[in-house]
Design a protein around this nucleic acid. Structure first.
Length: 139
DNA sequence: GCCAACGTTGGC
DNA sequence: GCCAACGTTGGC
């Protein structure tokens, strides 16, 4: 079981959108970066991911689960990139990028080192710290 | 709106 | 195969 972080511009695909499609989930299309693609190829059903809003928001707002592994992305005409399918698991109180930057235990997160990478691996520790904070800051 | 970081493209 | 030019992403 692996942990990941997925980034999305809320204007394109928001946490509210993700929740709205419920148990059937939604295809995570549009990744056009080889490093991100390679991480998606490693994903297995049951792996869990933090859902991060990039752009204006810059915060983690929930978790999703992989329910379908890597397959070709029909929105990619070149045929080079693929997608996975994810469904919403739970909402979290927002965990902001600013907060993450303040945590000494989170300084090695890929999010801080490679801010442009849209699919990233997480360590169990990073996952646990952020989930803890997300539950604490809920409502 | 700006800019740094990074990825891709294309000429050589 | 190198590298300059260019485009995109995303934080500030």
């Amino acid at each position: 079981m692996q942990y990941w972080l997925l980034k999305s511009e809320p204007e394109d695909w928001s946490w509210a959108d993700q929740i709205q499609c419920g148990m059937k989930g939604e295809a995570w299309t549009g990744v056009r970066n080889y490093q991100a693609r390679n991480f998606m190829k490693c994903m297995q059903c049951g792996d869990q991911c933090l859902f991060y809003h990039s752009g204006r928001k810059r915060e983690i707002v929930g978790t999703v689960e992989i329910i379908k592994t890597y397959e070709p992305d029909p929105t990619d005409e070149s045929g080079r990139f693929g997608m996975v399918t994810v469904r919403a698991l739970q909402s979290l109180g927002p965990v902001s990028l600013a907060w993450i930057k303040e945590q000494s235990a989170l300084q090695s997160m890929v999010l801080l080192r490679q801010p442009r990478l849209s699919v990233q691996p997480l360590t169990v520790v990073e996952w646990a710290i952020i989930i803890g904070q997300g539950k604490k800051s809920q409502r």
